[in-house]
Design a protein around this nucleic acid. Structure first.
Lengths: 244, 244
DNA sequence: TGTTTCCAATTGTCCGGTCAATTACGCTTC
DNA sequence: GAAGCGTAATTGACCGGACAATTGGAAACA
């Protein structure tokens, strides 16, 4: 065990024991140097780790304050790409059969979680497997009006529309909200998918947010027949940060 | 801009430009000291940041190697508590109506994703809202045989069984795998929930893994009628680590 | 009393150095 | 050719120091 790791352990234990009140001042670097007989470099290394773990906050001039008694245990799911949001990812193609502007009202506005009266550019169609052309799901894609200029290019696009918006307008997606619920397949969609009407299906809604926007720039809604699809994700326990 | 941040920027750009091959050796600390005319401390600070970002791997004796050209942009969902896996969280109580050992076979083994023949301790019943006693969902909880000793205490438990196992056996949950699919509600469950049979519903399966175990110690399966429930999660963009 | 100015405390940034731990690699040996 | 060994190279872990940047509060002032 190295010196700064010992130090980190001791200080973390003290914080956990409540010796240093949350919100209160933590001993200064020099005080800790004196107390443990180590150099400032070693103290800083220990403090940096405690800071990374979210236990301490440090600021020049203001000193070090205690943020929490124990490091929060977080469970997290991580994706290296939004493509992995769908299990099938890049193995499908979008076959657009409807395209045009719609004004949201009633059930549609509710489904999208938007105010009635808004105008969105809508693409709707089937998503098929690249290999055998099986119908995977019915998909509707709604693009906010300011980005409707992608309409022409969208005709040629068989992958993801959101990538078009992202590249064309230089957007960075900051957040995606995904909601999954169950519904009975409506007759029109059942016909398109070639299944019985009223069969159980997954309704997936994804809202894409750009940067710090309050409203999404794109919303997609998909209907997956129950027996062809399931949505899986793994949540792994991750400490605040860094190894112990 | 501080010196080590400049250094980090320069080196990150060089890596992105392909000047240092992925998998190849990166210049040593002393080489960088000479090249930029800074102390080893400054170089190490820059390298540490690049390491935190997942661009470099460093090991005493082996040197520094390039891991990736650009830092992977990760999207992640984080939970501070597993209770938030369900949107309803702590506002429900479990009303156990069946309890006992079962031997997995056929459809059940398939649903749980386990080998037929295994024995699990099973609890089944309704989960009701604390406030108005509305039936929220049908839940079945399967506990692996080694932990079946919690059976007596489970009778009194109305919250989460997994917590019982965790505290009783000193387990730390390292991972949870959640799968959501759609199904038509089976008649028996429909009757218990007071809804029409064959109505669409969400089937949620959660498998809880302890530490580094290969097999879960608990599996829960829930059936939520479609119109009473939806499963939501938000994925936020997070850089590899640390601020820029 | 309210505002400004200044100072001391604290962390941040950098420099210099030494020794230890780890690993790759060339050498010897069998 | 394979295995063991030793050495050099490299990163890790410390020490010491100096000055800059930031901040809170005290002192001076209007």
């Amino acid at each position: 065990m190295t010196r700064y790791k010992e130090l980190r352990q001791i200080l973390a234990d003290e914080i956990a024991a409540g010796k240093h009140a949350v919100g209160g001042r933590f001993p200064t670097e020099f005080e800790l140097c004196d107390r443990f007989g180590v150099s400032r470099h070693t103290v800083r290394e220990a403090l940096r780790m405690l800071q990374d773990q979210g236990l301490l906050s440090r600021q020049a001039g203001a000193g070090t304050i205690v943020l929490a008694r124990t490091r929060p245990t977080l469970y997290s799911q991580t994706l290296d790409s939004l493509d992995h949001l769908s299990d099938y990812a890049a193995e499908t193609r979008f076959e657009c059969s409807h395209e045009g502007f719609v004004t949201l009202r009633g059930a549609l506005a509710e489904t999208l979680g938007c105010a009635p009266g808004e105008r969105w550019l809508r693409f709707a169609g089937l998503r098929r497997a690249l290999t055998d052309d099986t119908a995977i799901c019915w998909t509707e894609i709604f693009v906010a009006e300011p980005y409707a200029a992608i309409r022409e290019q969208a005709a040629k696009e068989t992958g993801s529309i959101y990538k078009l918006v992202v590249t064309r307008f230089g957007i960075e997606i900051s957040e995606v909200e995904q909601r999954v619920s169950a519904l009975a397949v409506p007759p029109e969609i059942a016909a398109a998918l070639g299944i019985d009407a009223a069969a159980p299906a997954l309704l997936t809604r994804r809202r894409y947010y750009a940067n710090d926007a309050q409203t999404p720039f794109e919303i997609t809604v998909s209907v997956h027949p129950g027996d062809r699809y399931s949505h899986t994700h793994r949540l792994k326990r991750g400490n605040g940060a860094g190894p112990s």
